[in-house]
């Protein structure tokens, strides 16, 4: 049967692990010894663990920063590329190159650029300002990680918004121009409403991605300094490496519940405004 491989693989490598994860989240399993039942203890532990709460806060900050600036940059570049400009395809391709580049490569590059003696600080000194050790200062490390992620991702948003802009019917613009509407009026009343489904797509995909942030943190800061860049997934992997599978599984399920809730709210909002 044609669907047999698909069912076999998703059964063995998706539904079975998902069930195991749920089971283990209620136990003290360490991967070596038989486990004993722990009830909801793992979940209540997490909610009173300052490192976990810090990781949640960091993930939210990372998500808000990247999903505010990223789509905004993407929309601005798309609006500019949608004008009559030469070499549009070239600009679009350039912005898209980082999207095709592995996050590990991007993080490695930015770790060098943001080094206390790196290119960014050289430029800062060149214009007469004080250099800063971006990745070693708990106050700036998370924003430095966010900046690298925005640089990697905004080309994706540019391309998606540009495609959406080009599919908006030009008659609407012509008709409103006849009625005397200026570009700003057109932007608020035609362009933005027309982009709504695309925005929902960008935010659903983007927020799910932001809540899974791991590669950047693993390479650039290893969660530090003093947990200032530990994300939920980084915390999960740390618990796993400490063979604390109960808390790791509970973290995983809290992540799924949060993402499910967020996606649900976004799709609802998208429908309401559409």
């Amino acid at each position: 049967m044609l669907i047999a491989p698909a069912l076999l693989f998703s059964g063995a490598f998706f539904f079975l692990p998902m069930a195991l994860s749920l089971l283990w989240s209620f136990t003290d399993y360490n991967g070596l010894q038989p486990f004993t039942w722990a009830g909801l203890a793992n979940y209540t532990d997490l909610l009173s663990d300052p490192v976990f709460l810090r990781a949640c806060w960091n993930t939210v900050v990372f998500g808000v920063v990247t999903m505010t600036i990223g789509p905004l940059l993407g929309l601005l570049s798309a609006l500019m590329l949608n004008q009559r400009i030469p070499a549009r395809a070239f600009f679009r391709a350039v912005y898209f190159v980082p999207v095709t580049t592995s996050l590990v490569v991007v993080s490695t590059m930015w770790k060098m650029l943001l080094n206390d003696q790196g290119l960014l600080n050289k430029l800062i000194v060149a214009v007469g300002l004080q250099p800063h050790d971006w990745l070693s200062d708990p106050g700036t490390a998370l924003y430095a990680v966010s900046a690298a992620s925005i640089w990697q991702g905004f080309g994706f948003e540019t391309v998606v918004f540009l495609a959406a802009l080009q599919s908006l019917p030009s008659e609407l613009y012509d008709a409103s121009a006849v009625d005397g509407a200026g570009p700003i009026h057109q932007f608020w009343h035609i362009t933005l409403p027309g982009l709504r489904p695309t925005m929902v797509f960008v935010y659903v995909v983007g927020i799910i991605g932001a809540f899974q942030a791991f590669d950047q943190v693993f390479v650039m800061t290893q969660g530090g300094p003093i947990n200032s860049t530990t994300t939920v997934v980084y915390y999960l992997v740390q618990r796993f490496q400490a063979l604390d599978l109960g808390h790791a599984s509970a973290t995983a399920y809290l992540l799924v519940l949060t993402l499910g809730l967020l996606s649900f709210i976004q799709l609802r909002l998208g429908k309401r405004f559409a």
Binding site: A6, L16, W24, L245, A252, V256
Partner: peptide
Amino acid sequence: GLLLVTLMVPMQVNLIPLYRI
């Protein structure tokens, strides 16, 4: 519908049991 569910769950949830498997 079952396959649809897999789209909504991030891979990280299954990381640990998957390693075990």
